[in-house]
Design a protein around this nucleic acid. Structure first.
Lengths: 210, 210
DNA sequence: ATTCAACTAGAGGAAGATTCTAGAAACAGG
DNA sequence: CCTGTTTCTAGAATCTTCCTCTAGTTGAAT
């Protein structure tokens, strides 16, 4: 299972990094084996030796990018105790990650429907679920404490991730003009509004009880 | 400018309709000129006579689908007077459209980054902006009346469209399991919460003034 | 009858994913 | 240090797929 030589690991890394750069520079059109091979200097044989197919490389890259994003989000989220700061931090960290890792964000958004990961859909789904488990747990605890409105987990996820991914999409597409700084200032609070346990004047239970 | 024969219009329509069906059945992979030609019975030359290129057909299909969606949303929205019902109806209508027109929604979501519309990006952008103008106007009026929080237009759009498109994405991908009926029941109110002018007990101005 | 849009059929050719064979580099045991 | 084995690299050749173009036909309108 584990490689007996570590020279391959470096080429794998080089290939993935180059692939991401190629995608960022040339878009979906130019995202091809030849381009990646040419840009990386690695041979075609090496590529197929390590990934088996082009889709294999794309799937590996997708998983690698998603892991980075998820690790970043989970780290930000789990550092927070209260629901309010947690949600706000979650939102802010996604936007920050997008700004600081444009290439990764672009690839993630574009690949969602891109077809080259249909073959590895199960694998990717599993990886994503594993990473999201930490987030779901964090949310469940706060919902049980009454710090977040009693909603199904998917609805909460959608209310947070929805606006944020939409902003990212627009910022990445560069046809819209989005003031990312302003949005980062406004969104966390606005999203939190839709998740507060109740809005009719009652104080959050964390103050009155426990 | 106007066609001297109207037989072409029928062919164009047949091609677009078939293309959508092919996409729904075969996905990105099977979305090719040959497949469309075979499924429609129209000849390859005809296709090129009308659309000039494969990308041309894809762009035309994209615009047609987007028009349908936008017209539906605009019709639902402009029928509403108050901000609250408007926003809630907007959300509900998008979800209803997605449920009732799965193929269209799928194509729209998947094509966003798909690369075959890069060539016609300007054209598409213009068409989209034109359709969205009605929505933006509707929003501006309500913001000026104080019925909606004083936020930049993009932020409002993102808060509404974000969660809704995210739900659609999940429902379409079929790896997530989304209870669309339940979401349709919950989301409109939740989204409205993030847009209400203020949440600290003050009544909406429409009641106290004017 | 002429004209022009609409259409048909099929060839051409480019591009890209994959396979294959050959060889270099690391590793293990003697 | 030598040798067999596995991992890895190399790049040409292949095979498939798909977009585009050309040349010619049909048929409605004037």
């Amino acid at each position: 299972m584990s490689p007996k030589q570590q020279r391959g690991e470096a080429t794998v890394d080089l290939l993935l990094t180059t692939a991401l750069r190629v995608y960022a520079e040339s878009g979906q059109q130019g995202f091809t084996v030849n381009a990646i091979v040419a840009a990386s200097g690695v041979s075609l044989g090496s590529l197929y030796h390590h990934f088996g197919s082009f889709d294999g490389l794309a799937a590996a890259l997708y998983i690698r990018c998603m892991d980075q994003l998820c690790d970043d989000m989970v780290a930000s989220l789990t550092r927070c105790r209260t629901a309010r700061t947690g949600i706000r931090t979650w939102v802010a960290s996604y936007l920050r990650f997008t700004r600081e890792n444009r290439d990764i964000a672009l690839f993630l958004h574009a690949s969602a429907y891109s077809g080259y990961l249909v073959a590895h859909a199960e694998e990717i789904g599993a990886a994503k679920a594993a990473k999201f488990a930490a987030i779901t747990d964090w949310l469940r605890v706060r919902v049980e404490r009454g710090e977040i409105a009693a909603l199904p987990a998917p609805v909460i996820e959608v209310l947070v991730m929805g606006p944020v991914t939409e902003v990212a999409r627009r910022w990445l597409s560069s046809t819209y003009e989005i003031d990312l700084a302003e949005v980062t200032r406004l969104l966390p609070d606005l999203i939190w509004r839709s998740l507060r346990p109740d809005q009719d004047g009652a104080e959050p239970r964390s103050r009155t009880t426990a």
